[in-house]
Design a protein around this nucleic acid. Structure first.
Length: 469
RNA sequence: GGCCGGGUGGCAGAGAGGAUAUGCAGCGGCCUGCAAAGCCGUCUACGCCGGUUCGAAUCCGACCCCGGCCUCCA
């Protein structure tokens, strides 16, 4: 039984798809005018793991994650850089794909862009006007009549009269009520625009997600996700728009990622304390390895908990992941063979953890228990057990999308292509010293290797393996 | 001001009325020329004050701190 924490009710609930075994899920992706930052990474990795697990569990998942490619900030940035909207957004979509690839984030089944759904957006706005939930203003804007939607606030738990205090009307807006929000923006000269019944303009932010999600997944679908900061007003507005337009319940389960913090403060663009994914990836010569360490860092805490990012959180993840890879590498070197079946004891516990609102930290504790027993079985040369435990380990890590790299490569086993052979030379000298039983020299050479970041491991036959992680 | 989260051992981070989380670090042992890796064993916990209970880190109440939302943000 899979339980998911639903922000609509505030409770953990048993998950039941609307349509048999089929799960339809929509996640708010990014607005593409800058590089992906760690907060994006957390959402993308989090839902990637969730979707992977849903599939592992046998659900037939349709995963939609949108791209916002038209909005005020995109226009501003394009003007600043003196390039077209298309060039700018295409460029950052390219960067996003590269970053997510390194984080082992699989492509969603459908990745719609707002500008490809203008017709559906206009159609939904017309429906809302027809139903009395929206009205065009003289300046070419169309606004949503918030007070008209009786359930407004049901997701975020706010009530309209409390919101009134902070609500504001910008000088150029012509709202009937400060709480109303924009569905369509009349365009100013030199801004990109589309023809609409209300003149040249472009969509407001919230409407695109309502239009894209309902077009692709139907009026009523299973799961909608995103970062906590989208809960209000974005998701609240999506509900208001969609349910007013379709007269059907919009989404059954709302899921939100906890914030990412840096130095105990929320990371955000407005605070200018954000780190981009590529900055982090550049910290290691091996981008793939760094990507997986970052992914592991995210998975090491629960998706709803606040996560404090720091150098030590990455170091922590690196060492933990290293333990997994060392076991995998040892197995690969050992000559033990896969058993073709996994150990139900671990798989059961793993599923229990993941079934409890995708508790990845708890699931990882099962992974480590399995690693320990795998190591033990390899020491006692229990071949069948080792094979079975290895298969179990790979099944669990596969479901989480981790440990997918080549173990030797991750560990940097006898790989120092960049040092001109100096390491290899020292290792060879040390092997000779050990054969000559010149222990002081051997130890001195090992110290030199450690200074180069190299870990040496002696084999019983007098040779040594080494790695540079 | 209104509304949400959270305070767990040296660090990270789950859990949730009687339990060995897990990873890193520490300590003791096995292994090793010495190490490393691995294995075995082991020490540090549940913000503060009350209450409920046979029993509370876990439930209730007060308090103190921290973070967030109420405006663009994943």
């Amino acid at each position: 039984m899979l339980n998911i924490h639903n922000n609509l009710t505030g409770n953990k609930e048993e998950f039941k798809p609307i349509d048999g075994n089929r799960v339809r899920i929509y996640v708010c992706g990014m607005t593409v005018y800058d590089y992906c930052h760690l907060g994006h990474g957390r959402v993308m990795v989090g839902f990637d793991a969730i979707v992977r697990y849903l599939r592992y569990r046998g659900y037939e998942v349709t995963y939609v994650r949108n791209i916002t490619d038209i909005d005020d900030k995109i226009i501003t940035r394009a003007n600043e850089l003196g390039e077209s909207i298309e060039t700018l957004t295409d460029r950052f979509i390219g960067f996003m794909n590269e970053d997510l690839d390194v984080l082992s984030v699989l492509k969603p089944d459908i990745e719609p862009r707002a500008t490809e759904y203008i017709a559906q957006i206009i159609e939904m706005i017309e429906t809302l006007i027809g139903r009395g939930y929206a009205y065009p203003a003289e300046n070419g804007d169309v606004y949503y009549r918030t007070r008209q939607f009786k359930d407004y606030g049901k997701l975020s738990g706010t009530c309209l009269d409390e919101l009134q205090v902070g609500a504001r009307i910008e000088p150029d807006e012509m709202k009937d009520d400060p709480l109303d929000f924009v569905l369509w923006k009349g365009s100013k000269p030199h801004e990109p625009s589309w023809v609409s019944p209300w003149g040249q303009g472009r969509p407001g932010w919230h409407i695109e997600c309502s239009a894209m999600s309902t077009s692709l997944l139907g009026n009523h679908f299973d799961i909608h996700g995103g970062g906590m900061d989208l809960l209000f007003p974005h998701h609240e507005n999506e509900i208001a728009q969609s349910e007013a337009a379709t007269d059907e319940p919009f989404v059954n389960v709302w899921m939100h990622n906890g914030f990412l913090k840096i130095n105990t403060e929320k990371m955000s663009k407005s605070l200018k304390n954000f780190l981009t994914i590529r900055e982090i990836l550049a910290l290691d010569s091996n981008r793939q390895r760094m990507g997986e360490i970052l992914r592991f860092t995210f998975l090491l805490s629960h998706y709803r908990s606040p996560l404090n990012y720091s150098d030590s959180s990455m170091e922590n993840a690196k060492l933990a992941l290293k333990r997994i890879y060392l076991a995998i590498h040892k197995f690969e070197q050992s000559g033990f063979a896969s058993a073709g079946q996994s150990d139900a004891r671990y798989v059961e516990k793993f599923r229990q953890a993941m079934d409890d609102d995708f508790n990845t930290p708890e699931a990882l504790s099962v992974v480590f228990d399995c690693v320990r027993e795998l190591n033990r079985s390899m020491e006692t040369e229990s071949s069948a057990a080792a094979g079975r435990l290895f298969d179990t380990l790979m099944e669990m890590t596969g479901a989480l999308g981790i440990a997918s790299l080549d173990a030797a490569q991750f560990l940097g086993v006898e790989n120092a292509a960049d040092d001109g052979g100096a390491i290899r030379q020292l290792v060879v000298q040390r092997e000779q010293a050990r054969r000559d039983k010149k222990w002081a020299l051997a130890d001195d050479l090992r110290e030199q290797l450690v200074g180069l970041g190299v870990e040496v491991e002696d084999r019983p036959d007098g040779t040594s393996s080494w790695r540079k992680l």
